[in-house]
Write a protein that binds this DNA or RNA. Structure first.
Lengths: 182, 182
DNA sequence: TTCTAATATATCATATTGATATATTTTACT
DNA sequence: AGTAAAATATATCAATATGATATATTAGAA
């Protein structure tokens, strides 16, 4: 049981919470998980077919609508597979920030350009932080309703801590460039 | 001039500092850049050939050794390409942390498992932080030698800020799970 | 001298993205 | 009631990247 594809594990994880369509899985990725994971339709739909073929999920058509809606459910084997993966050591935590790449090579364009990238970065973070703070409040208020909530809260807390560190860094970085300018 | 492949930009960025072989480029990736970017041989070598074909870099054999060593140099066109890319807005900053994924779905395995992933994560960060602190000291001591140094320092400062935030989060996360356990 | 680690280039199956095509259904507006 | 726009939903594909591996040379240690 090696070589677990991450996309399989994420999908099974989401299906362990509730039955979902491929489209809904993508939405979860783009809202809840986007702070630490992402995936495209081009990986989600093939993975769903594959999970069904391997007996880790089942597929049914939604009879309640005329729409071509395919709802996926995790099987017992799928849940075992997910549980097993959860115990395996983490293989890779990767940060891939184009902003830092542009700053690292920043000498080629100079200070104004670097400052503008730092400003854009800071604005993006400032815009997203309120959503994390809101999520933190909500989760703190319903922590005892469902044991799963504290695990969601963990990831939200991570986002808040790092985003605040990012904003502090923006200030330090601006200061360095301005004091050390020309 | 749209659709710049990131691998092309990173390689040109490294070549803007000094002439390098593909192997040396990979080493830079795995040491200096690894905190915010990565790339494999499978993307580096084809990209180098492509850059030469497009006139953005030149290739020469190292005559000083019998080894099959190919040294790459950035051209004026390559430098223009890099400079242009540096002014374009950042397209994507992405964090992809398997640790957070396993924690998000952590309810399926429980608290002990989650705590063990947090502990591993914390140890990994504690191990890497000294290298960043060392780099910070070195760069601060030679900031006026080369204008490029302050740009390197910017990325090191980012690493230190975020790694310290990670360690704080580890403590908060452990506390939450232990207080809220069972 | 011989073994190991580092240097160096290269390829390839597998995996993923990002963009796009297609079609239906719901919502908002007139 | 009609219709335009937005959201829902599945799917595919070229371009790209990874991770593993093959191959060979050279430097340094024992």
């Amino acid at each position: 049981m090696a070589n677990e594809k991450k996309i399989d594990c994420v999908i099974l994880g989401l299906l362990s919470h509730e039955d979902l369509t491929g489209y809904e899985i993508k939405k979860r990725m783009d809202t809840t998980l986007k702070y630490f994971w992402s995936a495209s339709y081009g990986s989600i739909y093939p993975a769903l077919n594959d999970l069904v073929a391997r007996g880790l999920a089942t597929k049914r058509e939604d009879m309640g609508s005329r729409r071509n809606k395919l709802i996926y459910t995790i099987t017992d084997d799928g849940r075992d597979y997910l549980k097993k993966w959860l115990t395996l050591p983490v293989e890779k935590d990767e940060l891939r920030y184009e902003t830092l790449l542009k700053l690292f090579f920043g000498n080629e364009q100079g200070i104004e350009n670097a400052l503008s990238h730092i400003e854009s970065f800071g604005k993006k973070i400032e815009k997203e932080l309120p959503y994390l703070l809101h999520a933190e409040t909500l989760l703190n208020n319903c922590l005892n309703e469902n044991t799963a909530h504290k695990y969601y809260l963990l990831t939200v807390m991570f986002g808040i801590k790092t985003y605040r560190a990012y904003l502090e860094w923006c200030q330090d970085a601006q200061k360095l460039l301005e004091d050390n300018g020309g």
